[in-house]
């Protein structure tokens, strides 16, 4: 009995097929598993391992390297507050302290009801709107303390679910094109094209040499013919 849902497995297989080597799909597959469970359950890591042809230990060993991949449960809403330099200058430390007090957890912690996980994030690359806040990796703008309070109220009441998908959902758009061209065919095409180019270059060179020969010593006197 598969832990990952059939639709997730189907998408996983599609993703694996996009890459020359299956292991390349590891991170995308981890995102998919998180879309189902919110975090990487051991059973999910086992199945990902099988899908890309490595061991579950290798999946875990890789996943723990990355901040967005969670090997422990994460709240319904992952609230990330950037405190890096641009946001620091914009009051991020004060905003984070307020969020910690309001949610009753330190950065990195999850509220007892499992609703919110608070994160002291590194730069999220939205530095003209500070302090930068994301919820489930969706930008919600640079927020004042009052605006953050309003946002947390909204989330707690289940509002704004239209703009903020469930935690773990990375990409809602599915790829509809892809790998219509087998790599072996492409490599053969490239090789043929390179050969044709080499032929053209040789022909051009021959022609140049012939012209140089026809022009006699005048080219040589300009220093080209000595070699």
């Amino acid at each position: 009995m598969s832990h990952l849902r059939p639709d997730i497995v189907e998408r996983a297989r599609e993703l694996v097929s996009l890459y020359p080597e299956p292991r390349s799909a590891l991170i995308p597959l981890c995102h998919l598993a998180q879309e189902q469970d919110g975090w990487l359950r051991p059973e999910a890591m086992e199945e990902i391992a099988a899908l890309v042809g490595i061991t579950a230990a290798e999946v875990r060993g890789t996943a723990t390297f990355y901040d967005m991949l969670h090997t422990e449960p994460v709240g319904t809403y992952l609230v990330s507050i950037c405190t890096n330099i641009a946001c620091l200058l914009g009051g991020a430390e004060e905003l984070l302290a307020h969020a910690e007090a309001r949610l009753g957890v330190h950065a990195g912690g999850t509220t007892p009801d499992g609703r919110f996980t608070l994160e002291d994030a590194e730069c999220l690359a939205d530095c003209d709107r500070t302090p930068c806040v994301t919820v489930n990796h969706r930008y919600v703008g640079g927020l004042s303390i009052e605006e953050l309070d309003a946002l947390l109220d909204d989330l707690a009441a289940g509002r704004r679910s239209d703009e903020i998908p469930p935690h773990g959902t990375l990409v809602r758009v599915r790829r509809n094109g892809g790998l219509r061209v087998p790599l072996a065919q492409l490599a053969a095409e490239r090789a043929a094209m390179a050969e044709a180019q080499a032929d053209r270059a040789r022909a051009a060179k021959d022609e140049e040499a012939a012209q140089a020969g026809a022009a006699g010593g005048s080219q040589g006197s300009e220093g080209r013919g000595t070699a």
Partner: peptide, 14 residues
């Protein structure tokens, strides 16, 4: 006559 496939690949925070 030119063919190419492009894949968008997500990182995971590093």
């Amino acid at each position: 006559g030119f063919s190419i496939d492009v894949v968008v690949h997500p990182g995971a925070g590093a």
